[in-house]
Simulated scan of single mutants.
Amino acid sequence: MKKFELIATAAMGLEAIVAKEVRSLGYECTVDNGKVHFKGDELAIARSNMWLRTADRIKIKVAEFKATTFDELFEKTKAVHWEDFLPENAEFPVSGKSVKSKLFSVSDCQAIVKKAIVNRVSSYYKKSGWLEENGARFKIEVSILKDIVTLTIDTSGHGLHRRGYRVGQGEAPIKETLAASLILLTNWTADRPFVDPFCGSGTLPIEAALIGQNIAPGFNREFISEEWDWMPSSIWDQVRTEAEDLANYDQPIEIIGSDIDHRMVKIAEENAFEAGLGDIITFKQMQVRDFTTMRENGVIVGNPPYGERLGDKPSVQRMYKEMGQAFEALDTWSIYMLTSDEEFETHYGKPATKKRKLFNGFIRTDYYQYWGRRKRD
């Protein structure tokens, strides 16, 4: 099989987690800002799309070169062996971005790359005039950073956060990829209780259940590269069979999601059933200050209101204080909260064991981690 240079794109601050996932699939990788680079064949493309919980997309890096003029961009793009990827009827929209480069007009760069590819493919397939573009879709991106051009093809289609289970959502839903990252940053294992006291549309509990039962995040969706003639359907069949074989549906699991809004609880339940997990996640309407438990060694992960996102700051900070009081007795539980409020520890009433800077969309946040004292049975 042919080897490709692959890029798993990642949200800022999550690159190391994505890299750990890539390595767990058996591929060596290197980490860059917003990217994890690795090499693999067609099977690697399918497996990384199916299994990476925290990456945004999987792209093929087709070429990389320096260009400071439009002529140079055209000629170097045209020199790429596009026929290795694109059939003669391929549909290939070109998107673009340019940062700190002489070629700063993105629309012009897109047009030139498109023209160069058309020129190359037309010549190869001996077609005159414009190509039909009524076949499989190949999303090409020209990205220019400090005059270095990178040409990629997206293998995912919809972003990998689109798991296929979200039938409803609230005003400020957390992305599935970030939710999975928050869980993978904890010390939770499937034999311990997992609680999200701000569950909203249920993303964190659903992602925890997928992780706990080792269910591939891409199992319930399709990918743009499934349409490509050089990606045999047998590869996708193999990857889906592998995902089915590795899923541990019999793993006992205790996951609870609660929210103050009964409408969100209903949406969370609907999303969990869409994911096939409705029978193993418990959702209930409850305020965080009312949380109690007799269980030990559990993990609480929450994405509470920030004040700037939902509600007003004083009431949110009052809720942080009530939460700290409610959780005070849970000394064997580990607690993880994501918020942009820099005064969180003051209102919660306790300094975090550790905190990590992350971005929730464009909002800079901190992930406050409180590690519980592990009690052995």
Rank of each mutant, 00 (worst) to 15 (best):
E5R: 15
L6Y: 07
A8T: 03
I17L: 10
I17G: 05
R23K: 15
G26P: 06
G26W: 01
C29Q: 13
V31G: 05
G34F: 12
K39P: 04
A44K: 06
I45A: 08
R47I: 06
W51E: 11
R53Y: 02
I58K: 13
A67G: 05
T77G: 02
A79E: 07
W82G: 01
S95H: 08
S98K: 11
V113E: 00
V113P: 04
V118E: 13
Y125M: 14
E133Y: 04
N134Q: 11
N134I: 13
N134A: 14
N134F: 10
K139S: 15
T152W: 07
I153D: 01
L160G: 00
R163A: 10
G170R: 04
E171F: 09
E171V: 14
A172L: 09
A172S: 13
I174V: 12
E176Q: 13
E176C: 10
L182V: 04
C199S: 06
G200P: 10
G200C: 03
S201M: 01
T203F: 00
E207P: 06
A208R: 06
L210P: 01
G212V: 03
G218H: 01
G218Y: 04
F219Y: 12
E222M: 12
S234L: 13
N248Y: 10
M264P: 01
E269T: 06
E274T: 15
A275L: 04
G278F: 01
M286L: 12
Q287V: 11
T292P: 10
P304N: 07
D312Q: 14
K313P: 09
P314K: 04
S315M: 09
R318C: 07
G324L: 01
S334T: 04
L338Q: 00
S340I: 04
D341K: 07
Y348H: 06
R356W: 12
L358M: 05
R364V: 04
T365V: 11
T365S: 11
Y368I: 05
W371A: 08
R373V: 13
